[in-house]
């Protein structure tokens, strides 16, 4: 049997190389996402049982609906008021927890041709109406 163990080492080597490659790609991708482009617009997002509130830079507040402009870069500053929620726009892969006592940030560039209506939802269990903690994202031209 002994000499066959070499195959196992070759195989382990292949698995490890594959993982290093995956890890490096992931690290690089995450790094790109980490740098928020300079010309962004900041939106303050607050989650509470069981609705979302949005505050624009000019102080205008919206509840349950968020109006954004196509082609712009937005940075969301997200927090939770009562329990932990998670701010999620599935269509644009925006997702981060809304944690009481913390502000988490995430950014997104809305493509030029993305005019339309999208779903905003909560993705962290937050009690009775978690399933229905949704809001509307309206992307305008």
């Amino acid at each position: 049997m002994g000499s066959h163990v070499i195959y196992e080492w070759i195989y382990v080597g292949a698995v490890v190389s594959l993982l290093i490659w995956v890890g490096a790609e992931a690290w690089y991708g995450e790094k790109l996402l980490h740098e928020v482009p300079k010309d962004h617009i900041t939106i303050k997002v607050t989650g509470q049982q069981w609705f979302w509130t949005f505050e624009h830079p000019d102080g205008k507040r919206e509840v349950g609906t968020l109006h954004l402009k196509a082609g712009k870069v937005y940075k969301f500053e997200i927090t939770g008021k009562d329990v932990i929620h998670a701010f999620n726009i599935p269509h644009f892969a925006v997702m981060i927890d809304a944690v009481p006592g913390r502000i988490n940030t995430i950014w997104v560039k809305i493509p030029e041709d993305a005019v339309g209506e999208y779903l905003i939802q909560c993705r962290e269990y937050c009690g009775l109406l978690h399933y229905n903690m949704r809001a509307n994202l309206i992307v305008e031209a």
Partner: peptide, 9 residues
């Protein structure tokens, strides 16, 4: 497709 876990609906 974005369906969250722990949802009744």
């Amino acid at each position: 497709y974005g369906m969250p876990r722990r949802v009744w609906d």
